[in-house]
Amino acid sequence: MVETSLFPADTDHVITTRQVNFFYGAVQALFDITMDIPGRRVTAFIGPSGCGKSTFLRIFNRMNDTIAGTRLEGEVLINGEDIYQKSNNVVHLRRKVGMVFQKSNPFPKSIFDNVAYGPRIHGIKDKQQLAGIVEQSLMRSALWDEVKDRLETNALGLSGGQQQRLCIARALAVGPEILLMDEPASALDPKSTIRIEDLIGELRNDYTIVIVTHNMQQAARISDYTAFFYEGRLVEFNATKKIFTKPREKQTEDYITGRFG
């Protein structure tokens, strides 16, 4: 059997990177990453701690811009548009590319205000419209039934798993096409983790999802494609099935079988 392409080519590519190098000050964290991430699929980033998964993920919504002294070389295209071009509007970019963080971070406001935060920032004032968006987003994130009677209570009163689903709802409320998730379930108990995974399964048809995970089973369960990173380089990127059954690289095999230092 012959493996021809490093890149899955069966769908449109929504995110494309070309020879991306990334630096924290003088320290280079990412080396020459060229990658095409397919649209409306779940792509998982795996790799040992410190290999640059989060750094690479945060490139797609330019969150690394908030860290002083960082620098990027190469091209990052989203829907064909170079997002690091000077003319690119980072506010528009982040409306299109939502993010869910490892540590759930709902604002210390009401559940309603959390979800309505993004739409309000983007100029929606109409109460009915906001209420509609909030309901829809909470439905999508499978939280509606649990919170519909207490939308005005403080979001910090929710459980950890509920808080993370609220963060997902909050991200969905601005209507993104792409959802970046950095270890969204790593701080949750197994039951809450399953709920998040189920949720990702429900969202996969409508969103392009890129998820960082340390959990090999999780990557195998929920993702269509998997990228393995090692020391700032993309080692292998392929359909998840192939990565987990027939990895092309020795390093990948060692990592997924747990034979790694």
Partner: peptide
């Protein structure tokens, strides 16, 4: 103020000033 609030707000497309003012 935990930096998670700032990150979450910025990631939703708020500008820096909006983030400071509201969060």
């Amino acid at each position: 103020v935990p930096s998670g609030y700032r990150d979450a707000s910025l990631a939703l497309g708020a500008t820096k000033w909006e983030t400071i003012r509201t969060n």
